[in-house]
Amino acid sequence: MFQKPRTLAAFDPVMQTLVTGRRDETTVPSQALFMLNSPFVRSQSLHVAESLLTEKHRSDAARIREAYQRVLGRDPGTPDTARVKAFLARYSATWLELHPAATPPGQAHIVRASSSSSSITEGIVRSDDLDQDDEVDAEPIAEEAAQIILPDTGEQAAWAAFVQALFGSAEFQFVR
């Protein structure tokens, strides 16, 4: 059976049993929570941040421009760049404050939270013996294993948070 992409579950995927002439476009907190906390969005943001930081000699302004181009398809305005620069400084300072013993660079930073994922999946195990004639249309809630996304440095954390903010912005979510 065709599965709806689970990552889009919060964004009004159409019901496959309905004729849908015009899709709903709702804005609900579960979408904001997805953009803020989902391991998928956080790991993608971290990947983008890593690639922005690869070339050591680029200016922050050039990196910010590339991030805007890659995520929003436009150049940032001067106020945008200034705001993002201020954000990066503030965020990495706060991050270092909270992570005094930062992990050495290069460590694996996408960790499977194995202990919590087992207690999560335990809850959705079926206890009933389905009869063979009963249709199974499984759609588990918490199957996606919980991942913890851990940047290596304050700089990486700040850039990842910035890229994630671009993904979370209304401008990214709504095509004009």
Partner: peptide
């Protein structure tokens, strides 16, 4: 879930960081 798990509800970063973001 019956474990009280709701997708994406747990803040992924410290409160202060999330506030800034």
């Amino acid at each position: 879930t019956d474990q009280g798990y709701m997708p994406n509800i747990a803040a992924a970063t410290a409160r202060k960081l999330e506030r800034e973001q």
